[in-house]
Amino acid sequence: MDQLLPFLPKPAQEILVRMSRADKTRLEEIRCRARQPLEFIVSGKVWRMQEKRMPIFHPGDAKEMLQKISRYSFYTLEEELRRGYITIPGGHRIGLAGRVITENGRVLRLREVTFFNIRIAREKIGAARPLVPHLYKKGHWLSALIIGAPQTGKTTLIRDLARLIGEGIPERSVPAQKAGIVDERSEIAGCIGGVPQNRLGKRTDVLDACPKAEGMMMMIRSMSPDVLIVDEIGREEDTEALLESLNAGIAVVATAHAHSIEEISRRPTIRPLIEARLFKRYIALSRVSRSGSPGYRLHVCDEQGRPMTTAEEIWS
C-alpha cells in the first residue's frame, strides 16, 4: 500500500492516509477519471467519505500521475501504453484508458491517458490452502481449471497456489516442485524488470508479459516445469497449447472466466479440453459476503464435473 502512495495525486493521498485501517485493508480499486470525483472501491462498493465530497481529479493530475508512473521517462511506457496497463512495485496494476492512436487500424498506443483504474493487488498468503487436499495426490499436483466471474479472486487463488507449489508445505511433507508461470498480464507474479514482486516460492520460474500459447510451449521446452500455471485461458491457440502440454505429462493449473462449469463446458474453445478429461479437477469460485468481509466459496468437482466438496473461505 505504501508503495502506491507516491503515484497518487495529492488529494487521493490525503484520503488514503485518513481512511480507517479496516477500510484500507478492504480497498480494492481506486478509480481516477479526468474532471470527475475520485472513486474508491471498498469491498466491491463505492466508498463514501463522511460529510465531505470526493475531490475532483483534474486533467493536470492525470498528466502528473502518468509522469510519476513512468518515473519521468515516458518513453519507457511504450509497450504498456499499447497493452493498456502498467504494473508498479508491489504488484499493483494500473489500467489505463484515454485517447488511442492507431496505425492501419491497429492500436499503436494510448496518447492522452485520462482514466486510471488502480487495482490493488493483495497477496492472500494461504488462500489456496483449502485446495491442497484436492489437488495434491500421491506426490503429484493434479491439473485443475479454476472457474469464476471477474473479481472472484481467481488470480489471488492461482498466485497462492503457485507459491504453495514452488515453496512446498513442509508441515504436510509436500516438497517444493518446479512451477512455471506464464504471466501474460503480469498479474500473477507482478514482475518488474523480470523480478517477481509477489511471494511465489523458491522454485518458481516466470515468463512475464508473454503471450500464453507461445509462452506455454517456451516454458515446457526451456524450463521443464512440474506444474505450469496460466491465467485466463479461452482463446483457440491457448487450447492447442494446453492440449499439448497436458499430453506432455505436465500438470497445468489454469483459470477461466465463467460463472459455472456448465457455462464453461458450452464454450467451443474450452470444450475439447473438458471432453478429453485433461483437467482432473474443476474449481468453481463465487463471491460471498459475510458481515461485510469479502470471501469466496469454492466448489471442487472431479474430471467429469461431478461435485466433490464445497468449502468456504472468508478473507479478512
Binding site: 519521468y72 521517462s73 511504450e78
Partner: peptide
C-alpha cells in the same frame, strides 16, 4: 540508451 535500452532517466 533511450532509443534502444529504454532506460529510465534516474538510471541513465
Amino acid at each position: 540508451e533511450i532509443l534502444y535500452g529504454k532506460v529510465p532517466i534516474e538510471e541513465l
